[in-house]
């Protein structure tokens, strides 16, 4: 019973981590760089939507797409303007640029929203109701999160595996130079991937804001770190690997947190995250390329 409740309470966090992880994977596979700025960009987009919702009762069925569009614009801007205009920007340079962008967006968000945070900034969520199925109570907000996540993931995965665009993305992810030679428009695909990834991250930020009580500028940092660890655990060889890992990580963290209820293990309560990350690092030690690794032979 308590196990079921744990799973149900972890639904929103699983959804958020899954979306954030998928966004990271998409960017990593198409641009070969980790986007460290994703959390702050997502937070920035979500704050604008939440602010409109709080101040002007902007409806959420319009707000969600608006957040995605803001994230999309910022993401593709980063790829099209910043990466393309720079001279000789290699993979490590791109990573450093995203790290710099963390500072930029952190500052922008602070300037725009700091006063609002001090006065208490919260997002009521999609719904306040709680559904009762027998003895179990499920917050309707979690169902909204689950529904939105499933819709987004199905659309994107169907697109990846059944459309020409998806084929292009998978080709670019495999080898950008060869894909370019074969006629795939890698520039457009990379730009759209960046935009899509940041848009998905914006959705995840809004879902996370709906379950978080206090919202600050760095509220997505924990999710980001979880997403990074989950994607390294899942391995960048496939698209679905990190997503599966992203489901496992929050659930596992909750299960360990559950142990802390028993008085013998109560000392664990402060160390849950440490235990989870250390286990992930140990798993990576034994399987460096991730759990869902595809054996590929690289020719010199």
């Amino acid at each position: 019973m308590i196990l079921l409740e744990t799973f149900i309470s972890s639904i929103p966090y699983v959804c958020v981590t899954v979306l954030a992880t998928f966004a990271i994977t998409l960017i990593f596979k198409t641009s070969d760089t980790a986007n460290f700025a994703q959390g702050v960009i997502a937070a920035f987009s979500s704050f604008i939507v939440i602010d409109l919702f709080n101040q002007a009762a902007f409806p959420l069925y319009l707000g969600l797409p608006l957040g995605v569009i803001i994230g999309f614009i910022v993401g593709s801007f980063i790829d099209v303007v910043i990466f393309r205009k720079g001279k000789n920007v290699y993979a490590i340079g791109k990573q450093i640029i995203t790290m710099g962008l963390v500072s930029v967006f952190y500052g922008i968000t602070s300037i725009l929203f700091k006063k609002k945070f001090i006065n208490g900034f919260s997002f009521r969520g999609f719904s306040d109701k709680i559904m009762k199925v027998g003895e179990i109570s499920i917050p309707v907000n979690s169902l909204y999160c689950l529904g939105i996540t499933l819709v987004v993931l199905s659309v994107v995965f169907l697109g990846l595996y059944f459309t020409k665009w998806g084929l292009g993305v998978r080709a670019t992810a495999s080898n950008e130079t060869v894909a370019d030679m074969l006629g795939v428009n890698t520039r457009a695909i990379t730009a759209i991937s960046w935009g899509l990834a940041c848009g998905i991250a914006a959705i995840s930020a809004m879902l996370y804001a709906s379950v978080r009580v206090n919202i600050t500028t760095l509220f997505m940092v924990n999710i980001q770190v979880d997403a990074f660890m989950a994607s390294v655990l899942g391995g960048f060889a496939t698209f679905y690997g990190p997503v599966i890992a992203a489901v496992l990580v929050p659930v596992f963290a909750r299960l360990i947190g559950l142990l802390a209820i028993y008085p013998r293990f109560s000392f664990i309560s402060g160390w849950v995250n440490v235990i989870v990350y250390v286990i992930i690092l140990l798993l990576i030690l034994f399987k460096p390329k991730g759990l869902f690794d595809k054996i590929a032979v690289r020719k010199v």
Partner: peptide
């Protein structure tokens, strides 16, 4: 926070150009 933005922008611009 302006300093944070300026530092971030400096990183981006220096790595770019």
């Amino acid at each position: 926070d302006m300093m944070t933005i300026i530092i971030g922008l400096l990183i981006v611009i220096i790595v770019m150009f």
